[in-house]
Computed example of a mutant assay.
Amino acid sequence: MNRLYLVTDSAIARQAGHTLPFVVEEACRAGVRWVQLREKDLSTRAFLDLGFALKRITQTYNATLIINDRVDIALAIDADGVHVGQDDMPHEIVRSLVGPDKIIGLSINNLAELEAARGADLDYLGIATVFPTGTKQDTSSLLGLDGLRAICQQTTLPTFAIGGINATNIQSVRQAGVSGAAVVSAICGQPSPYEATRELIHLTNS
């Protein structure tokens, strides 16, 4: 199975003329099997409604639905798991809330954070930030391919790289040793999310 991970962004989707459910359905139809609902600015009710809508889509395609940060939303819609960053709820508490069977992913930005998470009850790591992106102005912490490779070599957990990944660099990212690649605008911001997804999957499998 391909390891392309769609991370959502409603604003980017809107700028491209799409609703988020449309983007997610087109991506799943094209072969995406990992979707993370990440919304920083929605009200709880709007987040919940969107979560239910995406769950219906991901279930149809047998795709995994992960909720970013919001454990309450993940529990309310019975999502497959939760992804947390270094400043979100500690992953140990997330595990105590969601139970042993849900997926938990943790963002790792450097080797020190990787070391701190060693031995933790986690299912995968999100390795960030690889390349410059429009949403990250501080480039001092960019990993680049060498930094990405160094982190991947120090863990046995599945790893998803994120940050500025698109059709021009996704092959080099996969060659750095990650299990998969997470993208935002490379799908959400494209005229045809379906065609963009197909191209990314083809590149990761070739």
Rank of each mutant, 00 (worst) to 15 (best):
K102V: 06
F47I: 00
V184H: 03
A167F: 03
F22C: 06
D78S: 13
I104T: 07
T58G: 11
G147A: 09
I108H: 08
I77M: 03
R198C: 10
A186V: 09
A13H: 08
D41N: 14
T44S: 13
F160E: 09
A112C: 04
W34P: 00
N110I: 06
S107I: 05
A76F: 01
A46R: 14
S192L: 07
G164M: 04
E26S: 14
S179D: 11
L143T: 12
A117K: 08
L20F: 04
V35S: 11
D121K: 12
A186L: 06
G147D: 05
G134L: 09
S140V: 07
R174A: 06
K136D: 00
A11G: 00
T60F: 02
G85F: 06
A128C: 15
P158V: 10
I93T: 13
T156K: 08
T129N: 12
S140I: 01
P90E: 10
Y61D: 00
T44Q: 11
Q171E: 14
A30T: 00
R70M: 01
V24W: 05
L125G: 03
D49P: 03
C152F: 06
I108L: 11
N205E: 15
V71Q: 08
D78N: 15
G164C: 07
L37C: 09
L200P: 08
A161D: 06
A74M: 11
G180P: 00
T133A: 06
D49R: 15
I127M: 05
I103W: 03
R38Y: 03
G85A: 03
L6M: 09
P100M: 04
Q36C: 11
L148Q: 10
K55H: 03
S140H: 11
L48A: 08
E113L: 04
P193D: 02
L142W: 12
S185D: 01
I93V: 15
S179R: 10
Q36N: 09
Q171M: 05
V98K: 06
S10I: 11
H91N: 11
P191Y: 04
P90H: 06
M1I: 04
R174Q: 12
L142I: 15
I103F: 06
